[in-house]
Structure formats: C-alpha cells, structure tokens
C-alpha cells in the first residue's frame, strides 16, 4: 500500500481511540506522576537510589511535577466533563457483572476473552482509583505545602503526622496502580499502546 493511500485511509477513517487533547494531557501528567513519585519517595526516605543527590533538587522536582500534575488534573477533569468521556472511565452498574467475567479470564479460569467497550472493568477501577488518589494527593500535598493557611485540613485528620501518613499511603497506592497500568500496557495488545502515541490502533 502506498503512503498516500494509508494517509487518506487515516483521514477519512473512524474516530481515533484517544483524542489529541487526551493524548497531550496523558503525556503531561504521566511524567508529572513519575517525577512526583520519585522525588516524593526521595523526600520521604532520602537515598541515592532514586536519582537525587540533594534535598533541594528533589524538592524542586516535586514542586514542578506537583503543579504540572495539579493543572493537568484539573484540565483532564474538565475535559472529561465537557466531552462526557468520564462515562468511559467511571465504573457503572454493568461494571460489576463485567468484573466477574473479566476476573475469570485474568485468573485463567476461562480462555475466552470477554469483550468490553473502550475500557475493561480492570482499567476502569485502575483509572478511577488514580482519579481519587491523585485528588487526595493534591489536597494532602497542598496542606503539607501550606501548613499554616491550610491548618484546617490538618485539624480534620488530627494533625500533620496523620496528614503526612495519608499523603504517603496515597502515594504508595498510586505507585501500585501505575505499576499495574504499566504491566498491562507492556503485556497486552501493543496496538492499543501505540494508540496513546498516535491516537489510532
């Protein structure tokens, strides 16, 4: 097939799997999450294994990453609401029954791969989890960043120590979710992985 043909096929082809905006935001918040996690874990437990030598580097990275994450998060939520594509992400009534089928396949109880719309129940839980925990991260993070003006948040959870614990546990959860995400990405259907770069499968 000639290149021109391919391009023309692409242009008049169906709707992309991931829109340009979604892809742009994904590639903004992906490194932001990674940067936040690495610098955050360094701040939690300083050591050379995380790639930082000095606290200030980690803190600046965290600062830059956290605000990138904050703004892209807000943008992504707004975009999700505007295009109603949050419906593809959030679990619905059907997710529960789908989940049984999905788990059956993933736990090798059946070889028949169930079909789902854009995202399977596992992805839905994964992505919704990230939406929730990033929100917790933003709130606890800002309270730790502005401890004086956000003292009410600290009061709500009983002090700065519990707040710090919450921030840490939430970071841990996000890291696990991201790990799970990456695992599935690298072991299941590379054409879908491609679509987050190109938009198309």
């Amino acid at each position: 097939m000639k290149l021109r043909q391919r391009v023309s096929l692409l242009i008049r082809g169906k709707k992309p799997r991931h829109s340009g905006t979604a892809r742009l935001l994904h590639w903004l918040y992906a490194p932001a999450v990674l940067g936040s996690a690495l610098s955050g874990f360094y701040i939690h437990w300083p050591g050379s294994s995380l790639g930082f030598r000095k606290m200030n580097t980690a803190r600046e990275t965290h600062f830059f990453a956290q605000f990138t994450l904050l703004f892209t998060y807000i943008a992504r939520v707004m975009y999700g609401l505007k295009g109603k594509n949050y419906r593809e992400i959030l679990p619905n009534r059907k997710t529960l029954s789908d989940m049984a089928k999905f788990l059956k396949y993933e736990f090798y109880l059946t070889d028949k791969e169930p079909k789902f719309p854009k995202y399977n129940p596992g992805q839905k839980v994964l992505f919704t989890g990230m939406v929730l925990f990033v929100l917790i991260q933003i709130i606890t993070g800002l309270s730790l960043y502005f401890p004086k003006s956000w003292q009410k948040t600290a009061k709500l959870v009983g002090g700065l120590n519990p707040l710090r614990k919450l921030h840490f546990l939430s970071a841990l959860t996000i890291s696990i979710l991201v790990t799970g995400h990456l695992y599935f990405v690298f072991t299941h259907e590379y054409k879908k992985m491609k679509s987050i770069f190109t938009g198309y499968e």
Partner: peptide, 27 residues
C-alpha cells in the same frame, strides 16, 4: 498478533476493523 503481520498489514487491519473481535484491550 501485533508484530508478525508487518506494520502496513496491521494498519489496514485496524482500519478495516478486521480484528474487531477483540475490542477491549488493556493499555
């Protein structure tokens, strides 16, 4: 499935949705 067919054949198959049986993937 994803690598053996060469890029061009795969692209075509995607567009034609011949592989549509397996709609929901994980990525």
């Amino acid at each position: 499935k994803d690598f053996s067919g060469g890029i061009s054949r795969k692209l075509l198959s995607i567009i034609k949705n011949t592989d549509g049986k397996r709609y929901g993937g994980k990525n």
